[in-house]
């Protein structure tokens, strides 16, 4: 019975190949509200299922989870469609949560970790709609030069990508540190793979930014993000920043 619980949890805290279900669903969802809902609720459902599952998590599930995190980290490198990129980074990050679950972390803590990973992805999902509205598609390497043409949108995009790739002082950083510290005593190889996965996120993030904001600006000059929208994003990022500092205080 416990195994069924873990299989269901593996659908929501995505473990390959069950992770493909989430990514197919996310790619087919066109409504931004539904995408936001998916990004926020999907991992929380996984944590909820995990909390009601009895018995210890089998080691093979952990190995599958870490493989999933690494696999989607690698696959994100070659992506140009920003929505799919969002789904892949979400998959890679949520799979990591199996490690603190294995280490005996409480449900509340897991929920907060999941939220810390999901929140910046939600912001990216919203930015995708901004890009689609202006250019017809959120696709790297298609237009480029946004830093020059749309400085406000580019600035927000840079910080959102930094938050997604677990840069200090965003919540993902504290989560990754805690997960690595948890994994190290029992599974040093898993800790090393996690550090490698983190590196892949940074690589994928930089490639995404290169394809969107770097280079000479195109001839078309669409309207930049409005000041009010910019302030809304800044407030959200500020909240994430504060949460990250709070989470780091919790580590000590």
């Amino acid at each position: 019975m416990a195994s069924y619980g873990y299989i269901i949890a593996a659908l929501f805290l995505p473990v390959f190949p069950l992770s493909m279900a989430f990514n197919m669903l996310y790619a087919r969802t066109r409504s931004v509200a539904l995408r936001v809902l998916l990004l926020l609720a999907w991992p929380q459902a996984g944590v909820a299922v995990l909390s009601v599952s009895s018995g210890d998590i089998p080691v093979w599930v952990i190995l599958f989870a870490i493989w999933t995190a690494l696999l989607y980290g690698v696959r994100a490198l070659a992506l140009r469609e920003v929505s799919i990129w969002t789904g892949f980074l979400a998959t890679s990050a949520w799979a990591v949560l199996w490690i603190p679950a294995y280490g005996g972390a409480e449900s509340v803590q897991l929920q907060l970790y999941a939220l810390g990973f999901s929140a910046p992805l939600v912001l990216l999902a919203l930015l995708v709609t901004e890009l689609e509205r202006r250019f017809g598609a959120a696709y790297t390497g298609l237009y480029g030069g946004l830093a020059h043409a749309l400085p406000r949108l580019s600035g927000v995009l840079v910080f959102v990508v930094l938050a997604i790739t677990a840069t200090p002082l965003f919540p993902g950083f504290a989560t990754m540190l805690d997960v690595i510290v948890t994994a190290l005593p029992a599974m040093p190889v898993v800790a090393a793979v996690l550090a490698g996965t983190w590196l892949l996120w940074s690589w994928a993030g930089v490639r995404l930014l290169h394809g969107l904001i770097i280079g000479p600006a195109g001839e078309a000059a669409p309207q930049d993000l409005s000041p009010s929208a910019t302030w809304a994003y800044v407030a959200a990022l500020g909240a994430l920043f504060a949460a990250g500092i709070y989470a780091m205080g919790g580590l000590a």
Binding site: L177, I180, L184, A191, A195, W198, L199, S202, W203
Partner: peptide
Amino acid sequence: RIGDAALVLAAAL
């Protein structure tokens, strides 16, 4: 970032 990863592992240890 390669160096960062090594430092994170050292800190965790």
